[in-house]
Every structure is written in structure tokens, then in C-alpha cells.
Design a protein around this nucleic acid. Structure first.
Length: 530
RNA sequence: GCGCCCGUAGCUCAGUUGGAUAGAGCGUCGGGCUUCGAACCCGCAGGUCGCAGGUUCAAGUCCUGCCGGGCGCACCA
């Protein structure tokens, strides 16, 4: 601050810093020390007992700790996954799902009013291609050139045939009818998979029903035409997106009379905007990034600022097994599905690993590593910290060690620097939630939790929490004699009083609460035992 | 060719909107369980933050240009 002021005040920053520091000293009931360091930093040391108030706050607020009013209740629509109902979810969708779920929770924690939505792309070429592929199983010569392959297509064909033989479905369905039936089957599978991933959506939005059947597409295009943003050329209908900064104008209806996907997306985003959200967030695969300017052009055309729409790009996932690349060929239908991954490594590990990188950077996902219950697997590291505290309290109960409320604890006994190392991150937690939410970056929380868990593990190793059981007390003195270890030495010197036990238990309980809170936002469970 | 993203320790990556001595994990090497959970801890080594300029009291962070990598540039989704 002093350095910023020096430009306008025309005085040396250190001089300004001294003045500010002097003023602060006058009312320093919360400050222990105020020092000025070159070139103009003001270092404030808050009184030690102030840190312990954080613990009381965590206990008082419980699950509400970390919540803020940053978002002021602004309504946010978060659309994610939105995979076409033409096949099962794969790893890329899983990453989008993990990021979206965590982001929704994060924004809610930061005081936003979030709705989640899945856009079902159940109209157009892809579902019809899928349907034709299903039909072609009976009659291979009719197989479409770029058709879908894979076991699930054969399964669908078999199911269809059975239904027809049983008279549930009539024979001689049109391709559109097959498409409708098959895509709804696949959508059910997708819903099941997302449930297995502990994700739910507030709304499932059907392109076919809610945009085409309802007439929303033609209405949206009419609106654009009336405002002069559409024109015809070469037999096609174009959206004049260059008016709003896009590189080129875009076709919304092709020469053959078919609408492009952009037509649906125009109608869809018009619908979203009309629903009155303050912010629209879409999570897309990174290969769609070229699509952003044109969608923001759409938003502007409808009279909204273009940053009303924010897009989070999620990069691809490289699937590995023991360091070796697992090849994924969509063409041959051999891609590893999200379901298979959840079954193999579990939803918690999958989610956490998806959230260990910024969304916009490529991610290596090693199945063997994700399964390992070891230090190499960050999920277990964090969960273990939580379980460890739970275990501690179980033992405390067994040994009838009294557990005090935060308000009853004598904090003066926590005189080691290690105590503050553990408390400081707890104090920073609310600010972390806010900044992560604002940046739309849930991975920051993942890193925070790993750091907090590390501090807890280190503290746990270094300091004894509970008095030993009675039968162990006698030889307690002799145990550590040979250890040259610094931490062991320190632990040996410490005398564990009941007040110290109570304070440390309380400290741990509050660390545990924050870990639980953070894991909850990530959508990962916080187990009592592992 | 144009546009977007990226380049930080041997590897994989963080770096809180421009602040002090750039941090983790893995890997290497060495050490630590007779206690409350070793699914853990401690230590050593490892850096010209791709390169070169610029803005600033201050740049990993902002600007420009190169080099290197990824992705887009459809009347496909």
C-alpha cells in the first residue's frame, strides 16, 4: 500500500510506511507487532490468542464455515456434461462432470444461487446416425459410413428386436422413431452413470422437445431476422456474427433446409437468457474453444453483455494403466467408459484426480495409480487425515479422555509454532472458497486440502495428543531414548497435560471439520475409517 | 496463414488477479513404527520460471516479438 501511494504522494514508500505503521500502533489491541521493512512493507503480527478465535468460529458455524455472501444470491446457470445420447459417457465427460459438480458446490458456498442443467442433444444428425447404426446390425449392408460401433449398439439392436417380438414396440419403425427410442435408452444409462458419480442435475433440457417441437428455434431465428442479424446467401441462412466480433458469419440453416447445431444453440441460449440468470456458465471440451466467440455473439445479439456467458474449457484426459497409454478409439467403439472407471477405482478417487489439475490443462489419469491406496494417491492422503482424526476420537472415547468445547479450552497451552501452522490455513479457508469461486477454479481447493492434510499428518507425528493407556505408562520414558530424530526428541521432552490434550483434540476436530467441508464441495466422501 | 491455450525442479503440476528467499507430489539418495492408524513422518539434492526486449519502485504473473508444443479455423456435432 505504501508503495502504491508513493507515486501519488511523491514521498519515499518507506517514509509512508512509517507513517501508516505509526497510526496503526495507536490502536493495536489486536496486533502484537508492527514493523516496516524495506522497500516499504508493513509487517503486522497479530496477537497469538487471536488465531484461536478462528477455531471457535469454525465450531460455531459448523458446516456453514467458509460460506460467504460474495455472490449476493446471483442466479447462475451451470450447464455441463451435456453428452449426446448416442453412447455411454467416457473419461472426458467424467472430468467435465467432476469439474461441474465441484464448481456448482463451490459457487453455492460463495453465495451464488446455482442451477445445474444437462442439455440433451437428441435432435439432428448424430442421433439419427446412431439409430441407423442400430438398425444396420440386422442388415449390415445398410450400415452408414460414419456409423457408431461398439457392443452397446449391438445390445440396443438386440433389445429392440426383443421388444418388437414381444409386441411392446411395433415393427417397421422409421429411423426417427428408432432414434427416439434408442436415445432415451442411452440417456437412461447416462443418468445411471451420473448417479453412480453422485451427481444430480436440476434440469434436463431436451433439444428435440423444448427447442424444435416447441417452435423455439424458429422463434429465436425470427427475432434475429427482425433485428437484421440474419441474411440469405447461396441458398443458406446466415447469422451475422461478425457484427459482434466473430471472425466470420455462420450458417444457421443449410442449403438442404436442415438447421445447423448453431440454430439450436441460439434458441437454447435465448431461452437461458430469458429465464433471467445473472450468469451462464458452460463447460465444454477444449476442442470447442473456437466456438466461444460465436456463442458470445449470440448473447450480444439478444442484447446482453457478452460476458454474461462464461465458458470453462476442459482438456482431454489421457488414460494410462501403469504408465502405459490406453488407446481409445471412438471409431471402433473401444473407448473406456466412465462407468468402467468408477467400478474399477471408485467415484471418490476418480473425482479427486479429475480435480488435481486446472481444467484447461491435459490430465494423465493412471488407473493403477488411482486404485493404489498409497502415498502416490492424493485422495487417500486427504481422506486418511480425516479418518485419522476420527480414529483419534474413538480412542479418546475408549480411554475416557474428556473432550471439551472450543469455548472451554485453555489455548495458552498451545505454545508451539506448529499450532499456528495448523490454524493459519483454517483461517484462510473462507478466502480460498471466495477466490476459487470467483476464478471458477475448483482445483485450488484440491491443492488446499492436500496442504492442510500434510500439516495435520506432520503435527500428528510430531506431537502426542492423547495420554497413553494405563499399562503403557510405565515404560513410556524409555521408548525414545535411542532416536536421534529431532521430532522424536521434541516429543520426548513434552509433558502432556490434560489441558494440552484437550486443546489439541479441539484443534484436530476443527481441522477435521474443514477437511470434511472441503471434500464435500469436491463431492468426495470423508470417511470415518478406511 | 489467422485465432485460442500452454511452456515453472529429472517427471507431473501449483503459484490466491503485480509483492519480500518461486512451492507441492512423484522419482533419486538417506533416516524414522514397542505409543493415538507407517494409507504416515523427517532430511539431502534438484531452478537463467522457453528466449529476447518493454511497462513498473516491484514481473513466473501485464505488453510486444521470436522459438517450441497442443487445439481450433465446416452449409459436422
Amino acid at each position: 500500500m505504501a508503495m502504491n501511494l508513493s507515486a501519488t504522494e511523491h514521498r519515499a514508500p518507506q517514509e509512508i510506511a512509517e507513517i501508516i505503521a505509526g497510526r496503526l500502533r495507536l490502536r493495536s489491541e489486536v496486533l502484537e507487532r508492527i514493523e516496516v521493512a524495506p522497500p516499504g512493507y508493513i509487517n503486522l503480527t497479530v496477537k497469538r490468542e487471536l488465531w484461536f478465535r478462528v477455531l471457535a468460529e469454525i465450531e460455531a458455524q459448523g458446516e456453514q464455515y467458509g460460506r460467504s455472501t460474495l455472490g449476493r444470491g446471483q442466479r447462475v446457470l451451470l450447464e455441463f456434461v451435456s453428452a449426446n445420447p448416442t453412447g455411454p459417457l467416457h473419461m472426458g465427460h467424467g472430468r467435465g462432470a467432476a469439474v461441474g459438480g465441484a464448481l456448482a458446490n463451490l459457487l453455492r458456498s460463495a453465495g451464488y444461487n446455482v442451477s445445474t442443467e444437462y442439455y440433451i442433444n437428441d435432435a439432428g444428425r448424430q442421433v439419427h446416425l446412431m439409430a441407423a447404426s442400430v438398425t444396420a446390425v440386422q442388415n449390415p449392408t445398410s450400415a452408414p459410413e460414419d456409423g457408431y460401433k461398439g457392443a452397446y449398439i449391438v445390445d440396443l439392436a438386440k433389445q429392440l428386436q426383443e421388444k418388437q417380438q414381444a409386441g411392446v414396440l411395433r415393427t417397421g419403425l422409421t429411423n426417427s422413431e428408432v432414434a427416439e427410442w434408442a436415445s432415451s435408452q442411452l440417456l437412461n444409462d447416462i443418468k445411471t452413470d451420473l448417479q453412480a458419480f453422485n451427481l444430480r442435475f436440476d434440469r434436463w433440457f431436451s433439444e428435440q422437445k423444448e427447442l424444435f417441437n416447441s417452435g423455439a428455434v424458429t422463434q429465436a431465428l425470427d427475432w434475429l431476422r427482425q433485428h437484421g442479424y440474419l441474411f440469405e446467401q447461396d441458398g443458406a441462412l446466415w447469422f451475422r456474427s461478425t457484427t459482434f466480433g466473430d471472425d466470420k458469419d455462420r450458417v444457421v440453416r443449410k442449403q438442404d433446409g436442415e438447421y445447423t447445431y448453431l440454430a439450436s444453440d441460439i434458441a437454447y441460449h435465448r431461452d437461458k437468457l430469458a429465464r433471467g440468470y445473472d450468469l451462464l456458465i458452460n463447460i465444454w471440451g477444449a476442442d470447442h474453444h473456437g466456438y466461444i466467440p460465436r456463442m458470445q455473439a449470440v448473447v450480444e445479439a439478444f442484447g446482453y453483455p457478452k460476458d454474461r456467458l462464461k465458458v470453462i474449457l476442459v482438456q482431454i484426459v489421457n488414460l494410462l494403466r501403469g504408465g502405459r497409454r490406453v488407446t481409445m478409439s471412438k471409431r471402433a467403439g473401444e473407448l473406456i467408459t466412465l462407468r468402467e472407471v468408477i467400478e474399477e477405482v471408485g467415484a471418490d478417487a476418480a473425482k479427486f484426480i479429475f480435480l488435481t489439475r486446472r481444467a484447461d490443462s491435459q490430465l494423465d489419469f493412471d488407473l493403477e495409480l488411482a486404485k493404489q491406496k498409497s502415498a502416490e494417491n492424493p485422495v487417500y492422503y486427504v481422506q486418511y487425515a480425516h479418518a485419522r482424526v476420527a480414529s483419534l476420537f474413538r480412542v479418546a472415547a475408549e480411554r475416557r479422555v474428556p473432550v471439551q468445547r472450543t469455548s472451554e479450552v485453555d489455548w495458552s497451552v498451545l505454545s508451539s509454532p506448529d499450532d499456528l501452522e495448523l490454524i493459519k490455513p483454517l483461517a484462510e479457508y473462507p478466502a480460498l472458497i471466495e477466490s476459487s469461486a470467483q476464478a471458477l477454479e475448483p482445483h485450488r481447493l484440491t491443492y488446499y486440502l492436500q496442504d492442510l492434510a500434510a500439516r495435520l499428518h506432520a503435527y500428528y507425528y510430531k506431537h502426542r495428543i492423547l495420554p497413553p493407556a494405563l499399562e503403557q505408562e510405565l515404560d513410556n520414558q524409555d521408548n525414545l531414548k535411542a532416536s536421534a530424530h529431532e521430532a522424536d526428541q521434541e516429543r520426548k521432552r513434552e509433558t502432556l497435560t490434560p489441558a494440552l490434550t484437550a486443546a489439541r483434540l479441539c484443534l484436530f476436530r476443527n481441522v477435521q471439520a474443514v477437511i470434511q467441508n472441503g471434500l464435500g464441495i469436491l463431492g468426495v466422501s470423508a470417511p470415518e475409517r478406511m
